[in-house]
Simulated scan of single mutants.
Amino acid sequence: MSLPFVRHRRLRQSAAIRGMVRETVLTADDFIQPIYVTFGTGVKSEISSMPGVYRFSLDMLEEELKEIVDLGIPAVLLFGIPETKDSVGTSAFIENGIVQEATRLIKKLYPHLLVVADTCLCEYTDHGHCGMVHTYELDGQVCGDVLNDESLELHVKTAVSQAKAGADIIAPSNMMDGFVQAIRAGLDENGFQHIPIMSYSVKYSSAFYGPFRDAADSAPQFGDRKSYQMDPANSREAIRESESDVAEGADMLMVKPALSYLDIMRQVKDRFDLPLVAYNVSGEYAMVKAAAQNGWVDEKAITLEILLSMKRAGADIIITYSAKDAARWLAEK
């Protein structure tokens, strides 16, 4: 007898069959674990808005690194919280900056663990913006304009300093026009032609960054970042930004945040033949943690589903604060 429908469920009958026909697979090799490093000694302080995520002083870092390596996670992304800040973010590019010192330590302890250095100024400037600013007063309030071209020189100095310290990948997140070209030229001129650039190509001005700004003490002291980060309403602009970065020499493209921008990730993946990085950002992580602590969601199931959705949308690499948990859960499976 001819049946008027197709029996799709035949391929869902058992775990073995489902595993055999599964189209998308997560592994620990997909993940990069962010780490916050800070000055001082004996510091391992949990970030209140990001349960399970800590700021580490250098003397407390080894245990965290060992756990990451033992779980098979291949890379870390370093963010620094400096002891001093100024108007040009000097602590971002000095030889003994906190990220530079952490990089040297990591490469000494675990030479094969990849170090990705976030290249930005917002954690290091006293005004909290990602570049140099021209400030002025308007109606009794301090205002400012972020200076694009003048800022590029500082980002180049930061990238070169990070490469000299041993960073394997430079990840500029500042969203200044021309930043990839400037950093590529600076790295090449200083003998770092082999160092790849993981560009924050598509970085939206997002409300999902709130916990990160607490963690890195990087909230802007006036205004916001809407004049240089992207409008969440725009998708064609993401293609223009990515085209520019490809032309300027980026080796990897990133979409940040990831979860609310899966459509953007798919567009970038379909258009450009470079590895695509998804950044599962602090607010996305914090929402799941809060819901799990209240018993509203199954943290393991929902976290793995979120990460799987990013890979299905086209991500080759996922930066996530859940990297360690996800690696454990996947190993259990």
Results as ranks from 00 to 15, higher is better:
residue 1 M to Y: 11
residue 3 L to P: 01
residue 5 F to Q: 11
residue 12 R to D: 12
residue 12 R to N: 13
residue 12 R to P: 05
residue 14 S to C: 12
residue 17 I to L: 14
residue 21 V to Y: 10
residue 24 T to Q: 12
residue 33 Q to I: 03
residue 36 Y to F: 15
residue 38 T to A: 05
residue 39 F to I: 09
residue 40 G to T: 01
residue 44 K to F: 02
residue 46 E to R: 01
residue 51 P to Q: 03
residue 53 V to I: 12
residue 55 R to P: 01
residue 60 M to N: 10
residue 61 L to V: 04
residue 70 D to P: 03
residue 74 P to N: 07
residue 77 L to E: 07
residue 79 F to W: 06
residue 80 G to F: 02
residue 83 E to M: 14
residue 86 D to Q: 12
residue 89 G to H: 03
residue 90 T to F: 06
residue 93 F to A: 00
residue 96 N to F: 09
residue 100 Q to G: 03
residue 100 Q to S: 10
residue 101 E to M: 12
residue 103 T to K: 02
residue 108 K to D: 15
residue 113 L to F: 06
residue 121 L to P: 01
residue 125 T to W: 02
residue 132 M to L: 15
residue 134 H to I: 10
residue 136 Y to N: 10
residue 137 E to A: 14
residue 142 V to F: 08
residue 151 S to G: 15
residue 152 L to M: 10
residue 159 A to K: 03
residue 166 G to R: 05
residue 178 G to T: 08
residue 179 F to N: 13
residue 180 V to L: 09
residue 187 L to K: 01
residue 190 N to K: 13
residue 190 N to Y: 07
residue 192 F to Q: 05
residue 193 Q to K: 12
residue 193 Q to R: 12
residue 200 Y to G: 02
residue 201 S to N: 10
residue 209 Y to T: 05
residue 210 G to S: 11
residue 211 P to W: 00
residue 213 R to I: 05
residue 215 A to V: 02
residue 216 A to W: 01
residue 216 A to Q: 00
residue 218 S to W: 06
residue 218 S to K: 03
residue 220 P to C: 13
residue 225 R to W: 09
residue 231 D to Q: 10
residue 233 A to Q: 13
residue 236 R to D: 15
residue 236 R to S: 15
residue 237 E to T: 12
residue 243 E to N: 08
residue 244 S to G: 10
residue 252 M to I: 10
residue 260 S to V: 13
residue 261 Y to N: 12
residue 264 I to L: 13
residue 267 Q to C: 09
residue 268 V to A: 05
residue 268 V to L: 09
residue 270 D to F: 04
residue 271 R to Q: 13
residue 271 R to I: 02
residue 275 P to R: 08
residue 278 A to G: 04
residue 283 G to K: 04
residue 284 E to I: 04
residue 285 Y to R: 00
residue 286 A to N: 01
residue 289 K to G: 01
residue 290 A to W: 11
residue 293 Q to W: 06
residue 293 Q to Y: 08
residue 300 K to I: 08
residue 305 E to R: 11
residue 306 I to N: 12
residue 307 L to Q: 01
residue 309 S to D: 10
residue 310 M to S: 07
residue 311 K to H: 07
residue 313 A to W: 02
residue 315 A to C: 09
residue 317 I to P: 00
residue 318 I to C: 00
residue 322 S to F: 10
residue 327 A to C: 05
